[in-house]
Design a protein around this nucleic acid. Structure first.
Length: 882
RNA sequence: GCGAGAGUGGUGAAAUUGGUAGACACGCUAGAUUUAGGAUCUAGUGCCUUAACCGGUGUAGGGGUUCGAGUCCCCUCUCUCGCACCA
């Protein structure tokens, strides 16, 4: 073989690594520092690997290979998040057991990942659907149950009567089922809940210690949604009942001119007067029919209805009307509010719409024009009653005062509320972990830990039961059982766990995948945890990461794990979009439409894909070239015809999906790896470009030719056991330094460009010192491991390059012989001055020589030199005034 | 609406603490070589001006700080992501 041929060398090295277990993690070595680098494991879908997967996986693989060479004991595993809906839906359609589908898809995924040359320790593979794995998922559930963190409740689900099944949120689109478009209603069903709210405060506080993207931390904070305020009790006028509200602005109590109950609030019936009953009932019905989307549309006008009833404001005994309105949500706070239209935008809007009074109690704005919501600098006014006044206080102080007053008068207390809800933990599905609970005499009873795993029974059909329960409910022989302790008849729980469950703790199982005494071997856990680097998609910013943190904290409290947080550092890779597309829009009659017009166009839109040749860029954007325009019968138009230039998310329907297998077939895995990293910063969203792949492929071919003679296929004769020149050492050590720093900083794109710079230089060398070239291969090996191994072995090395030590740069070689100053006049570069390094820091010499530069002398002659700036080894600037 | 982030050539992108903007690559142009190539090599390539040098201009737009700003400060615009009546 003479030319670079990845399809020959790549499978060879992949087998080598597998057979020799090159990347097996040594579990007994406690002398080296550890490094745990983790990928978000994939759902093995039937579609196979997507180019988005190898993006993050390549980044972590480079890091893992680098850290090993740096002397770290590296844990770099992979596994499968294999429970989930698609396999079950496929089973409903074809009768194939989800286990079979899953097994097949996993094999596909594994094959594809191995074809990219990732350095996973395949002996640690985990599969969430493996009973040996979910035994411990169920075990953790039992611990949650014992801690009182798992409980049953009746909660509305997405019930589709036409399909006879409960749907996941993602299967419901605009209130209709994704399949068939049938109506979906909210139906309360018995469900398992996990009390994540009990951990809200810790989940919030511990974010501070994590080295995560700010955006993710912020999203989690918003999701948890802590707000500090007070519960305040309002006596209902003429009744014994009390309406309790939650408010973050108890200081504005005097401004509360009405109250609002959520339509579902239990006190609505009590408060509503007979005259209003009919209207209120109608309003409540209407609200119940609205989808959540309609109800929470902020642009819509507010609606509501007066109950006829009144409540008493505890601070001033004012009698204020109680309304019902759907802008108040039953699920947050107490489902009731005190409305302060002067200082809350929503209340202000509502008050305006229904002619309710607006009272100013915080000075600083004009409550006739808009609600004044400043809660820092505003000063209280109109807020006095017997024994208390807030007047003159600033908002934060007023809050403290009034809460004290409320507490001492038994009218309320300081409270903290969270947006975070408890986690709905059951799914009415077959393909999930069975919840290890039986029901005896109508009471839930956990299974004995020793009896785990509780496996899924074989079923005939995977269709929904028709009652909304999971298909498991139809398996009489499985559902009906006896309580092993009392012998009483019992019924098994038929709900299964959501897909999140298995992914909540998989990072622990990798540490000791065969451990039998618990989810993780405690000794090993102490060594390996926490995860030092976790890379995955931003779509998991909230749910997966929050749920996993929650379980981890529970396990921490139980002493199962030793760290408060599972993932010390987190990086989100950005999405890879399809190739850039240039589109011309035409209307029904073949007439031209601008991209803006096309967006609003109602008729049949024609999209014409254009190539680079058809278009050009002008000051206003991309437009059609004249030749191309006439081709589409658009020659009659004046001026430039704007077209759309953008890249879209890859999707089957758009037909712009790139299959990694195809890329590997044509350019090889090393080119795929290199391209995915060279595209741009890891975190960024970026469009795919096959031309870019070709570019890095050409680089690899050049690397090959630097070592191997194209014609003979033997090593190049200019590779010598020679003493490297100073110039060669300089480039090499610059490359060592840059590549090292860039890997540490996650800047893989610029690391690759430095490798390219080195190779471009090396191509020019008549004599290529072996020592220098071998070091280059070591630097290249984390990025393009196959070509590096192949060339390494051709150079006569018997051992894998993965076992080499990462080189360190020597600062001595980085010093240049000369330095080039940019000479500025008034901040503009007018000349450059190259001088020996020995003189470069000497101010007098440099300035003197600089002034002699012909161009500089010209500028100096034209004005008066008022100032000389000299920054050693940076710049010279002359300030000249006319 | 709120929150976060980002706007740099024809394209993907580089640019330590403010110090020669556009590294590296794609594309394009010209040339060489080859039976041919979408292979390889050489040279050029922000824009305007020029035969070339010189020069002008340029990091979304406007203003400011500074000897000097892509980088720091203020305002405006656009885009992306997240949240969205959470009291």
């Amino acid at each position: 073989m003479s030319e670079y041929n990845p399809s020959q060398i790549e499978p060879k090295w992949q087998s080598f690594w597998l057979e020799n277990k090159t990347f097996k993690t040594d579990d007994t070595d406690r002398t080296r520092p550890k490094f745990y680098v983790l990928d978000m494991f994939p759902y093995p879908s039937s579609a196979g690997l997507h180019v988005g997967h190898p993006e993050g996986y390549t980044a972590t693989d480079i890091l893992a290979r680098y850290k090993r060479m740096k002397g770290f004991n590296v844990l770099h595993p992979m596994g499968w998040d294999a429970f989930g809906l698609p396999a079950e839906q496929y089973a409903v359609k074809t009768g194939t057991h989800p286990r079979e589908t899953t097994r097949y898809n996993i094999a596909q995924f594994r094959r594809q990942l191995q074809a990219i040359g990732f350095s996973y320790d395949w002996d640690r593979e985990v599969d969430t659907t493996d009973p040996a794995y979910f035994r411990w998922t169920q075990w953790i559930f039992l611990q949650l149950y014992k801690q009182g963190l798992a409980y049953e409740a009746s909660v509305p689900v997405n019930w589709c009567p036409a399909l006879g099944t409960v749907l996941a949120n993602e299967e419901v689109i605009d209130g209709k089922s994704e399949v068939g478009g049938f109506p979906v209603i909210r139906k309360p069903m018995r469900q398992w809940m996990l009390k994540i709210t009990a951990y809200a405060e810790r989940l919030l506080n511990d974010l501070d210690e994590l080295d995560w993207p700010d955006s993710v931390k912020e999203m989690q904070r918003n999701w948890i949604g802590k707000s500090v305020g007070a519960d305040v009790q309002f006596q209902v006028d003429g009744h014994d009942e009390i309406i309790e509200v939650f408010t973050t602005r108890p200081d504005t109590l005097w401004g509360a001119t009405y109250m609002v109950l959520a339509p579902e609030h239990p006190l609505v019936d009590v408060i509503t007067t007979p005259e209003q009953r009919e209207d209120v009932q109608a309003y409540r019905n209407e609200a119940s029919l609205k989808s959540d989307l309609d109800r929470t549309d902020t642009r819509k006008k507010k609606t509501g209805i007066f109950t006829g009833g009144y409540a008493i404001n505890p601070v001033n005994d004012a009698r204020i009307p109680v309304w019902v309105a759907d802008y108040v949500l039953i699920s947050y706070g107490t489902g009731a509010i005190m409305a302060v239209p002067g200082h809350d935008e929503r209340d202000w809007e509502f008050a305006r719409a229904f002619g309710l009074p607006i009272v100013e109690v915080v000075a600083g704005g004009d409550v006739e024009q808009a609600a004044y919501t400043d809660n820092q600098d505003g000063v209280l006014t109109n807020s006095s009653a017997t024994g208390i006044t807030l007047d003159g206080l600033r908002v934060p102080d007023a809050k403290k005062q009034i809460i004290q007053w409320l507490e001492s008068h038994g009218k309320g207390q300081g409270t903290i509320n969270y947006k975070l809800r408890d986690w709905l933990f059951s799914r009415q599905r077959y393909w999930g972990e069975p919840i290890p609970v039986i029901h005896v005499d109508g009471q839930p009873k956990p299974l004995d830990e020793a009896s785990l795993p509780l496996e899924l029974p074989e079923v005939e059909k995977y269709e929904p039961s028709g009652t909304g329960e999971s298909p498991l409910s139809l398996i009489e022989s499985w559902v009906n059982t006896t309580d092993p302790q009392t012998g009483k008849p019992a019924r098994r729980e038929t709900n299964t766990m959501p897909q999140w469950a298995g992914s909540c703790w998989y990072y622990l199982r990798y540490i000791s995948p065969d451990y039998e005494l618990g989810p993780v071997d405690p000794e090993k856990e102490k060594y390996w945890m926490p995860v030092d680097m976790y890379v995955g998609g931003a779509e998991h910013a909230v749910l997966h990461l929050l749920y996993a943190r929650f379980w981890h904290k529970v396990l921490f409290d139980l002493g199962v794990v030793s760290t408060k947080e599972p993932f010390q550092r987190l990086v989100n890779q950005g999405m890879i979009l399809g190739e850039m597309e240039y589109t011309l829009f035409l209307d029904e009659n073949g007439g031209y439409l601008s991209p803006e017009q096309a967006e609003r166009y109602d008729g049949e839109l024609t999209r014409i894909k254009l190539t680079d040749e058809d278009i050009e860029k002008t000051a206003t954007g991309f437009v059609l070239k004249a030749e191309a325009a006439s081709l589409h019968g658009l020659s009659g138009h004046d001026g430039e015809l704007a077209i759309e230039a953008r890249s879209y998310k890859m999707s089957k329907s758009r037909g712009n999906v790139i299959n990694p297998d195809d890329v590997i077939k044509e350019y090889g895995a090393d080119a795929l790896r290199l391209y995915e990293m060279f595209m741009g910063p890891l975190e960024q969203v970026k469009p795919w470009s096959m031309r870019g792949v070709e570019g890095v492929y050409r680089f690899l071919k050049r690397v090959w030719r630097v070592f191997v003679d194209d014609r003979s296929g033997t090593l190049n004769e200019d590779l010598h056991q020679a003493e490297p020149s100073r110039e060669q050492l300089k480039v090499l050590h610059e490359t060592i330094k840059k590549v090292t720093e860039d890997i540490e900083g996650g800047r893989y794109n610029t690391a690759i460009s430095q490798l390219m710079i080195f190779n471009n230089e090396a191509m020019k060398w008549d004599k290529k010192p072996l020592e220098v070239m071998q070091t280059f291969l070591v630097l290249l090996s984390p990025f393009a491991p196959h070509i590096a191994e192949e060339l390494w072995s051709r150079l006569g090395n018997a051992q894998t390059i993965a076992a080499e030590h990462w080189p360190a740069h020597n600062g001595e070689y980085l010093v240049a012989d000369s330095f080039t100053y940019a000479i500025q006049v008034n901040g503009k570069v007018r000349a450059t001055l190259e001088l020996p390094a020995t003189q470069a820091s000497d101010k007098t010499t440099v300035l003197e020589l600089a002034k002699k530069e012909p161009l500089i002398a010209r500028y100096l002659a034209e004005g008066n030199l008022v100032k000389e700036i000299f920054v050693p080894l940076k710049i010279v600037n002359f300030v000249v005034k006319p």
